[in-house]
Amino acid sequence: MTDDRVTAGGPAGGRVTVVGEALVDLLWRRGEREVRAVPGGSPSNVAVGLHRLGRPATLVTAWGDDAPGELVAAHLAGTGLPVHRAPTGPPGRTIVAIASLDHDGAASYDFLAAWDPRELTVPEDTAVLHTGSLAAVVEPGASRVAELCREQRRRGRTVAADLNVRPAVQPDRAAYRVAVRRLAEVTDVVKASDEDLRWLHPDLAPLDAARALLTLGPRLAVVTLAAEGALAVTADGHVARVPAPPVAVVDTVGAGDSFQAALLDAVAAHGGPPTDRALLGAVLARCVAAAALTCTRTGADPPTRAELAAFTRHAGGRH
Rank of each mutant, 00 (worst) to 15 (best):
P246G: 12
P140T: 10
A8I: 00
L148M: 04
T7G: 10
S193A: 13
L225I: 12
A205G: 15
P246K: 07
V46K: 01
T187D: 02
V137F: 13
P117Y: 04
F259H: 08
G317R: 13
E119H: 14
G281Q: 06
A315M: 11
W63Q: 02
T275R: 14
N164Q: 08
D66S: 07
A192E: 08
P82C: 05
T126Y: 06
S108Y: 07
G254P: 09
L23Y: 11
P90K: 04
A300V: 07
D116S: 13
S108V: 12
G256I: 07
P123I: 07
T126C: 01
L264M: 12
P43L: 09
R318E: 14
A285R: 15
S143G: 15
L112G: 10
T58S: 08
V83I: 07
R154T: 14
E307I: 00
V46R: 00
T158F: 04
R182T: 15
Q260E: 14
A192R: 01
S100G: 08
D4E: 14
R173H: 09
H75D: 15
R318T: 15
L101E: 09
A47C: 01
G237W: 12
G217P: 12
V180K: 10
A168H: 09
G80L: 05
P90V: 09
L216E: 14
G256K: 00
A230W: 11
A230I: 10
N45G: 07
V233W: 09
